[in-house]
Design a protein around this nucleic acid. Structure first.
Lengths: 208, 208, 208, 208
DNA sequence: TATGAATGAGGGTTCATTCAT
DNA sequence: CATGAATGAACCCTCATTCAT
């Protein structure tokens, strides 16, 4: 029996890797198909056999990001920290560790695409949303795991979304300044917010 | 009375208006110079008389955003709310009011460009930074005006940067979902943070 | 029987033919790429698949001239005259025969390019030099074949270069006057010089 | 009485100087009008007041070269050498002295234009011809002054034209090789020709 | 007369994609 | 399935020239 992954598997992977990398580094519009082909070592015909258009390739890249969300992004965080709230800050720290060596020249690959193509590519929007939902879904689950350590009245989903906001908004400013300062600032404020929430939940929890 | 504007003022304005609008609507790379020319009703030579390149035009657009920051963005907010902390939320509300009618199809014009060109256009980065600094500068000033209502130990500058983070990160998610929910969520969490900060400052202000 | 030429051979040839003809007729700078495309019946993309730039196309044209030097220029001369010295004048006559029907509207395609682009295109200069060297190389070989008919002390290489000088300088003046007179004049003087050289070699050939 | 040279005289001179220099350095087609304007420090309107077109400016440049032929080219030669035949080689030496320091990057300004525009600009051709005629006219006069030192049967006009041929053809090859060798070669052969002619005239002058 | 913005055709080149081999 | 030449619209920009001020 022949393996379920024919020769085109490699081609497909090389294309996806090259496209993901280039879209991340240069953006979608600034990346020419010919560049992807060159970097992937593939011919136009091959690419268009697998993906009917540059847009379809973008969709595949975003689906791949969804698949990689756990193994690449979340698993390391869960391995590093067991406390659910610490996982949140471990996640934010992980992005800092990824991009700080590059002086924040790159941003979040999903966030970049969100701003660049969400408008012009209606079919792509749901895939971006899927990534964002997956990401904040992990955070929301951790928040729920924190249980009573956080105020009962706290909207976990709102807060999870805010954690994503902090990551994306912080990274955007970090890229503009080529410095960690703004990212660190937003994370620090988020930490302070958590501290206040934790204090309020554990303390008398008087008013509210 | 003849106008004090030289002959090229109109052309310059028409170009800047069209370019700003199109860069906002479509992004920088997705906007062809020919589209700008058509919408501005201008010939290629005229544009290149005034701006030596598309990149220079982008720079001019960003400088214009800096000039418009106060009259368009901040003045209405300062007129609407006098309380410095309320001004922050009036500012965030103003963005909601602007983009909600468009179902959040557009994002922050500066933020979009930050993610699209910060990397590829080194000469543009400072101009984006200038806009971000100006924006959070207003917020920081308001926070200082709040004086003792906020904890003395609070880093006003960090928090100001976080307000920008909330706006940009919230708007990014709003665009992806074409809904206000994520934006509102982040703003609501920020409000809760402020409430806790205000309570802590007014309360005994015990530790730190 | 399928032809041994790959699919692009025809296109390549059509482009080269059109480019060579137009560069000859109009000069390099005065020839638009679009004109080449139209005359070759080819699309821009096709051209730029084969040649990365207009300059690269110019290089290819000059390499083609090098290849054609023998079959087009020298072989007919060698067929027409067997005496080495007569070959030189047959060569000069051949240029007269080529350009006289056009009233000397065109000049030497290499010479034209030499003066137009030698300065601005450093990578092209060697290719022009290669053509000149090839051309005068044939003449030099003929002069060597003439053996003792020419003075031993005569620098064959210098004289070969001078034959090229006569052709180029004569053609330049012929173009300016639209008449063969100046070309014929230079060739006639060259003939007289040869006559004197031949006489001197056969005669006493004493001094020098 | 106001002087006969109004303010535009300077403008006119600055334009002509800049145009002549740039046409010489870059060629006619490769020189943009805007470059001439910049280098001359002049506005488009001013230039087009004085010269109705780029072509007209070229014509003016060539007329200026005609005017300058004696003061710049021939007078120094006549001052340096009094023997008519030596004047010819002094003239050829002068070109060597001019262009050798530039490594023969530039060629004869007239010759360059002859090959570039003789074909496309019918109204320019006579002006080039005028320059060539003037140039070889001086040489022809010198040859006549040489009187009996040269064979009576020698066609002075033909030989004068050949001297120009040597200069132009030699300079063309010098530019291509960026070396004086080919120029020197042609001049050396011309010298040898003259030596033979002189010997023949002084000798018995028997046959022919 | 001087100024420099305006004109608009055309410059060389790249794009995403198709298709014959 | 792979190949890479072919397609042609669109890219950003420069050209020589005009004209309102």
């Amino acid at each position: 029996m022949s393996p379920p992954t024919p020769a085109s598997q490699d081609t497909r992977t090389r294309i996806l890797d090259a496209a993901a990398r280039l879209f991340h580094e240069q953006g979608f519009n600034a990346t020419g198909v010919s560049t992807i082909l060159r970097e992937a070592g593939v011919n136009p015909g091959s690419l268009y056999n697998l993906y009917p258009s540059k847009d379809a390739l973008l969709a595949a890249v975003l689906e791949r990001y969804t698949e990689l969300l756990h193994p690449i992004v979340m698993a390391p965080v869960e391995a590093k920290a067991s406390d659910p709230i610490e996982r949140i800050f471990a996640l934010l720290q992980q992005y800092r560790d990824w991009f700080s060596p590059l002086e924040f020249r790159l941003g979040c690959p999903i966030g970049n695409l969100a701003l660049e193509v969400a408008d012009s590519h209606p079919e792509i929007r749901p895939l971006i949303q899927q990534n964002f939902d997956g990401w904040s879904g992990y955070v929301e689950r951790w928040l729920r795991e924190a249980g009573d350590r956080l105020p009962r009245s706290l909207d976990r989903r709102q807060l999870a979304s805010t954690v994503l906001t902090v990551m994306e908004g912080g990274l955007m400013q970090a890229r503009s300044s080529r410095s960690a300062a703004a990212y660190d600032a937003s994370v620090a404020q988020l930490r302070q917010y958590f501290d206040l929430l934790l204090a309020r939940a554990s303390g008398g929890g008087k008013h509210t």
